[in-house]
């Protein structure tokens, strides 16, 4: 990763800190890090365990000059954050990295135990000495990968992935594994499905906190008395409500990075909801969050259009 380290060092001449990854010595997988000095930058890595979307840190660091190492999917979040004024393009140095798909480390750990040795050989995977089909442990978002190479970057490191990672892994725009099952259910059964899913929710808000587009951060209406949209109880009903709030607040914002589902400690398939909405937004407004710096998010657009008020009679 000499290339990456050099690039970060170079970027540090111009910015206060760079968001990237280091290898956690205990587990051998990547963990998010901030590089303030060239010395720290020596530890920078990029590999298939760099699942985290580092764009989540940008709103809290707004106003500071930053560098960020971004995969294609992460760069989509960066784009959307810039559009929504949660990051300033001029304050940002984006170090793009070509991504050939990443692993769902948590899934591996939950199955094989935390810290199991992961040996990713690119086309195959060895886990604690056992060979496993790599496909099974790819992050789900890689199956519907839209951009393996970042769309915006100031510097690019490593090899271009040459197209969406989904193509590399053999699929593109794959629907959520549960969506077919859910489509076949009657409305009442679907409701029961979600009730069951949300009955596990512990309201830890990890889904919210890892989401780069949930930029209200500390001031979230899921927890406020004024307004009192959601009750404070921990139960399926309230959890469903807060997730509906979250999903609708992300209408036209969600770039589909999948962090919410990945972070959910109790395995609720949150991206099922997001995917559904993202498709609806694309159908209705032709808008896909993170596509272009020049786009205007449909939910933040007000224009006096024909027949806007309509006729009351």
């Amino acid at each position: 990763m000499a290339d990456l380290v050099t690039t970060i060092k170079q970027t540090l001449k111009d910015v206060e800190l760079v968001l990237g990854w280091v290898r956690d010595p205990a587990t051998g997988v990547a963990a998010p890090a901030r590089f303030h000095t060239e010395e720290e930058a020596e530890a920078a890595v990029f590999d298939s365990t760099c699942v985290h979307n580092l764009a989540v840190h940008l709103p809290r660091l707004k106003g500071r000059r930053l560098g960020i190492v971004a995969k294609g999917c992460d760069a989509r979040s960066v784009v959307e954050l810039i559009i929504e004024h949660e990051a300033e393009r001029e304050d940002l140095k984006v170090i793009g990295v070509g991504c050939g798909s990443i692993l769902d480390v948590k899934k591996i750990w939950r199955r094989f135990g935390y810290g199991v040795e992961i040996d990713d050989r690119g086309d195959s995977l060895e886990l604690g000495g056992e060979r496993g089909p790599r496909e099974d442990f790819l992050a789900r978002k890689c199956h519907g990968c839209l951009e393996a190479d970042p769309d915006i970057y100031d510097l690019f490191v490593g090899e271009s992935a040459g197209g969406p990672a989904g193509e590399i892994s053999g699929g593109r725009e794959e629907p959520h594994p549960l969506s077919a099952m859910l489509e076949d259910l009657a409305p009442a059964e679907r409701r029961a499905f979600w009730r069951e899913q949300f009955s596990r929710c512990i309201r830890c808000y990890a889904c919210r906190e890892v989401c780069p587009m949930c930029f209200c951060r500390d001031i979230c209406i899921m927890q406020t008395q004024v307004p009192h949209w959601a009750g404070g109880e921990v139960n399926a009903r309230e959890s469903e409500m807060i997730q509906h709030i979250r999903v609708s607040h992300l209408a036209g914002r969600c770039t589909g990075c999948g962090e919410c589902e990945r972070a959910c400690p109790v395995g609720i398939p949150l991206m099922l909801l997001m995917d559904e909405q993202n498709r609806a937004i694309e159908d209705m407004f032709g808008y896909r969050a993170g596509d272009s710096l020049r786009a205007r998010p449909p939910m933040q657009t007000f224009s006096i259009e024909k027949d806007l008020w309509g006729d009351e009679e």
């Binding site: 929504e84 209200c216 951060r217 001031i219 657009t301």
Partner: peptide, 13 residues
């Protein structure tokens, strides 16, 4: 509690 995201300014007719 204002987070300064300026969505309101953008949409205000």
């Amino acid at each position: 509690r204002c987070i300064g995201c300026w969505k309101c300014i953008e949409v205000c007719p």
